[in-house]
Design a protein around this nucleic acid. Sequence first.
DNA 1: TCATATAGTTGACTTTGACAACTAAATGGT
DNA 2: ACCATTTAGTTGTCAAAGTCAACTATATGA
Lengths: 309, 309
Amino acid sequence: MPINAADIAQIRAFNRFYTKVIGLLEDGMHNSPYTLTEARIIYELGRRGRATASSIAETLDMDRGQMSRLVLRLIDQGVLATLPRIGDRRAAPMALTPHGDKVFAHLNAMSDAAAADALLEPLDEFGRRDLVSAMRRIETLLSEPDDEPLVLRPHRIGELGWLIHRQGLLYHLEQGWNGEFETLIARIYADFETAPANPPKSLWIAELGGEVAGSIFIIPAADEAPGTAQLRMLYVDPAFRGRGIGKRLVDEAVRFSRASGYSKVILWTQDCLVSARRIYQAAGFTLEREERHQSFGADLNGQYWALTL
Amino acid sequence: MPINAADIAQIRAFNRFYTKVIGLLEDGMHNSPYTLTEARIIYELGRRGRATASSIAETLDMDRGQMSRLVLRLIDQGVLATLPRIGDRRAAPMALTPHGDKVFAHLNAMSDAAAADALLEPLDEFGRRDLVSAMRRIETLLSEPDDEPLVLRPHRIGELGWLIHRQGLLYHLEQGWNGEFETLIARIYADFETAPANPPKSLWIAELGGEVAGSIFIIPAADEAPGTAQLRMLYVDPAFRGRGIGKRLVDEAVRFSRASGYSKVILWTQDCLVSARRIYQAAGFTLEREERHQSFGADLNGQYWALTL
DNA sequence: TCATATAGTTGACTTTGACAACTAAATGGT
DNA sequence: ACCATTTAGTTGTCAAAGTCAACTATATGA
């Protein structure tokens, strides 16, 4: 995909900006008796409990030779000690000494205070949330997926708007749909909220590492026989695809429908949404009928799926 | 305001993470004949056109002595030259030589390519937007307001959802309102979208530095005499407050109403929204009546304001 | 006018970082 | 079982970066 020059400019501007931020925070460490690199080693070892010199050198992007000398100095200073070489006798596991633990705690407290004072303190609650979530998003986007647990939970205030925003934009970029879709789903989510509590309804947010990774809801189907539930608004954030989140959401929605006494679950989707269709198929839904229609500025083929419980 | 330990942990995790990202990008510079620090000086001077050594030393957080020596080296290498000292004869302005310009262009291209390859290339369009906007948000939150121009423009796809999300969350955090408010404004924005084009309606997004800084809309008032416009959903993002954005939005909305032939503008607000009230007053609105009501989980005092055009 | 601040220079020194050569131990394919 | 290869760690050497202080020349402001 072609790369946008403005995006590069923004990224490089951010890199320059954040280089200064990091420098600012590191300056705060300069009144400790340890150099910055020593402090980083102490911090990394403290975090891990025990580790080999080379594994720390790797995460800190350091030369192994340099690490070797610094480790010797820290041993001399009584901050850390090597443990007996068990198993692989090339590798010398290290750990902080009790004194090292104290140093670690102190450095940690200093770093925490520096980050809090310089970054969080000037912001109000809204700004703090924004800052933290923007950082989380960057980490999510740029790092390999880790194996944090997926949590399904009810939605919180502001998240319906978030879902409208994300899906409006996503289907615009991926499918070329226009603003009618965003308007439609704004109503759909509002209608979900104001629907009565009975027959049962439920909406799930899939949360991963503090971010909204997906969502789905179940609502009693309108214009259908009683006992029919409708599954709506299955959504998986592009940054979290390929991790079975869609399947988890659909499974949970079906489980809820069954447990709530529904005898059937129906849903409406478009045939261009391929990965969603696969999930529905895998969950046991069958295609009942199709219908061409013009919506969201596109020619679509609507599909009606159903699952008898 | 008390500082959340989880926020600090997230910020420090991001700092560690991004330190590695920056290191990765800088590694790419190592096959140029210039050292990293030299490259940074060349880049900074190239960006500015001309600058004194100390001003560059300041932005790059360098020692002035070190800068002095590096400048000498770069002069020897024919990359930059000092200009005649005019005005303040202590300060020696510098600029890149023609050869320096070439070096600058080359370093720039290398950095651009490194940023593009390492960060943008692996992402899809959605991820790239996310990354860039998260970076922009962090810069906005952590740096002093600059004087970029405020742009009022129509909304783009996804931005209604964004406004619902932001306002739902904002008024929850600041006023304690519950999810009913978010649901209500989801409908209000959807109704705006589906309202006919006549009588005239209009929605403005206030954009600042590529971010949504605020919004407002004008729609024909329901249940009022023809010729009456309703001003709704004035919103200024907390990160952009105190810069006259609310005033700009209201002024533009009033200007539009007048130009569209409306004879009156009305609006509904709550007395707890103090800064909004000040803006309405300044724009010439007068308070017509107040009415206590229970909404959004709070006891509110609704105010009806009007402006005859 | 005189104390103070600023731009730039120079010297002395420490820390960091890069690279290569080396030992000892582990690994993996034949 | 053997041997080439890889890995963990050490040591030597050197260049680059960063720190600190002293110094000159000029500018600024009470």
